[in-house]
Design a protein around this nucleic acid. Structure first.
Length: 273
DNA sequence: ACAGGATCCTGGGGGC
DNA sequence: TGCCCCCAGGATCCTG
C-alpha cells in the first residue's frame, strides 16, 4: 500500500504528537509480523524518549535516545497516534503508551506484510540499509546516476522504478503515474531510452511524488495517515486503476497489463513505446 | 540478467 | 446466504 507520499505523510503527522514524548510501556499482539521480532521491540523501546521521526524510502525511522525504531508498512500497515480511550482495532500488533498515558502510538497491519525493527545504534541502522542496498531518494537523485542505471539494463522501465535498490520509495501506483507523466511506455527497456527521456522520467517521478505528498497520499483500501486522516490523491490518478476508462488527455481507453509481476496501467496513445 | 510465478496474509467484490 | 475466484500501495525467493 504505502509508497513514499503515504509514508512521508505518516512521518509528518507523527512528529508533533511524538517528538519529546516517552514510551512508558509497550504491548504486543500474539501474531508475528513478516519483518522484525516483536518481543525485542517491546522490551527495547520501553522507557525511551522520541527524539525525531524521519523517512527513508518507504521506511519510517524513529530516533529513541540514539537507538532506532524502524517501521515498514508493507501493504496494509497503519502507524497512528490516537487517544488511549479509542477502542483498539483488530490487527493491532504493537501499542506504545506515551508518558501521560492518555495517548498511544499503534501499529496495525491486516495482512502482516509489514515489519517493526529495533536497532541499538545509528551504525546498526545504517548497516541495515547498506545490506538491503537501498537506493537514493528520488528528489535529489544524481541525473548521471539515473541515466547510467537505465542504460545498463534490459529490464522494463516499470521494473526499474519498482526496484528499491535503484531509487527508494516508488511503488506500483506512483510508477504508473510517473510513466504517464513522462509519456513513456512501462514496457520500454532501460537501455533503449535516450538520456533526454531518462531525464524526463526522473523529473516526472519527483513531480508525481510531490503531488502525492501535497494530497496526503492515496487512500484506496487501508491507508490512513499518522493522524488517521485519509489521503485524496486517488481522485487525481491519470492511469492507475482506470483500465477501460478514457485517458484524461486523449480519450483513448486506458490499458491494463501484467508487468514485472504487477498490474500496470497506461495510455497506449500518450505513452511512447 | 531477466521474467514470471509462488509465497507470506486478510478481506472485499463479483459471479453463480 | 454461501462458495469460489480474483484482486490488492510490498518484498523476497526460486525456476527456467
Amino acid at each position: 500500500m504505502p509508497e513514499l507520499p503515504e509514508v512521508e505523510t505518516v512521518v509528518r503527522d507523527l512528529r508533533e504528537p511524538l517528538v519529546g514524548r516517552c514510551f512508558r510501556s509497550v504491548t504486543c499482539g500474539p501474531h508475528a509480523l513478516r519483518g522484525g521480532r516483536l518481543d525485542e521491540v517491546r522490551k527495547s523501546s520501553r522507557g525511551k524518549n522520541v527524539r525525531s521521526v524521519e523517512r527513508r524510502g518507504k521506511w519510517i525511522i524513529i530516533d529513541l535516545d540514539g537507538a532506532f525504531l524502524l517501521v515498514h508498512l508493507g501493504m496494509t500497515g497503519q502507524l497512528t497516534v490516537t487517544s488511549a480511550k479509542a477502542p483498539r482495532q483488530n490487527h493491532t500488533h504493537v501499542t506504545w503508551i506515551l508518558d501521560a498515558g492518555d495517548t498511544e502510538l499503534r501499529f496495525r497491519d491486516i495482512r502482516r506484510f509489514g515489519g517493526v525493527y529495533f536497532f541499538k545504534s545509528r551504525q546498526n541502522l545504517d548497516a541495515h540499509f547498506e545490506k538491503s542496498g537501498l537506493g537514493p531518494e528520488p528528489f535529489d537523485m544524481d541525473p548521471a546516476y539515473w541515466r547510467a542505471c537505465l542504460a545498463k539494463t534490459s529490464r522494463s522501465l516499470k521494473a526499474i522504478l519498482l526496484d528499491q535498490r535503484v531509487v527508494a520509495g516508488v511503488g506500483n501506483i506512483y510508477a504508473d503515474e510517473s510513466l504517464f507523466e513522462a509519456g513513456l511506455s512501462p514496457t520500454l527497456l532501460g537501455k533503449n531510452v535516450s538520456s533526454r527521456q531518462a531525464d524526463c522520467l526522473r523529473r516526472a517521478v519527483a513531480t508525481v511524488l510531490r503531488r502525492g505528498i501535497d494530497k496526503r497520499g492515496s487512500s484506496i483500501r487501508d491507508y490512513v495517515g499518522g493522524s488517521g486522516l485519509l489521503g485524496t490523491y486517488q481522485d487525481e490518478f491519470r492511469v492507475y486503476g482506470r483500465a477501460g476508462e478514457p485517458c484524461r488527455r486523449c480519450r483513448m481507453s486506458i490499458a491494463r497489463i501484467r508487468l514485472a509481476g504487477r498490474s500496470t496501467h497506461f495510455c497506449p496513445k500518450c505513452q511512447k513505446r
